[in-house]
Amino acid sequence: MRLLLILLAAQIVFGQAARGGQASRDGQSSRDLEGVWTNTTITPLERPPDFAGKQFFTPEEAAKFERETNQRNDADQRESNPEADVNHAYNQFWWDRGTKVAAGLRTSLIIDPPDGRIPPLTPAAQKRLQAQAAYARQHSTDGPENRSLMERCILWPTAGPPMLPSFYNNEYEIVQSRDSVVIVVEMIHDVRVIPLDGRPHLASNIRQWLGDPRGHWEGNTLVVDTTNFTGQSRFRGADENLHLTERFTHVNPDMILYEFTVDDPTVFTKPWTAQVPMMKTKSRVFEYACHEGNYAMVDILAGARTAEKKNAK
């Protein structure tokens, strides 16, 4: 009887937590991931060499790291060096990189391998990436196709999946129903609709920029399994064999612990995993204007054509 009451009470508390959009304060997680979240942080994906062998900052090291990083990132500084100052014209007003290391004081977002670094590439992948990089160097201004997917407003490398903090627009809006979870990524207003109904992946010949996600619950963790990438998305060198596993756990009212594992045996010599806290924010997600009012692409190519003419004479 007492056991039954406890179970019942637990269920009531739990049920309310799930409906109210709150994870309980005592560390119990809930299946409710709805809301707007931000993963803004200056903790780097990979551990900086200065912190080799050191998984966590001490509070003093964290403060120093924040001070130095924020100083370096400050686009409002004017160093009396015209070139640097012109590059800083895209000033602090536009940036939203955060000023703090992530909760938990890790020195890298990567938690596995333990050295906090992306594992070495396979020789084949290394060769492919070198050839691509060499081609890109020689042909970077041939035409719009040679510019990055980001400049072309097709895909943002940090918008993912997997999702990583970038220099601005780090907001994610999550809406969920029984059968689907929807994630709107502010950068660059891409939306992922993740079915939870157990349907199989798309046929292997259908390839998408954002891959093909399928979700399921493991306890109170939403596990999203994504395959069918195009291979052109190239997350950190990944190819079309990328198998991405993401885990979303609402660990406290203000935080989803987001973890992803990159498994791509033709590219990385072993799988690797990163953990990124996503914090509740009151921000709203607005439309992202990528091409609109942005003349960089035209100017880059026009500049290259002008330079060619000048050199030809």
Partner: peptide
């Protein structure tokens, strides 16, 4: 797609 408090309309053209 519907969730309590939200409706999501995903238009194939042009994935908005």
């Amino acid at each position: 797609l519907q969730a309590p408090g939200y409706v999501v309309i995903l238009n194939e053209m042009i994935h908005d």
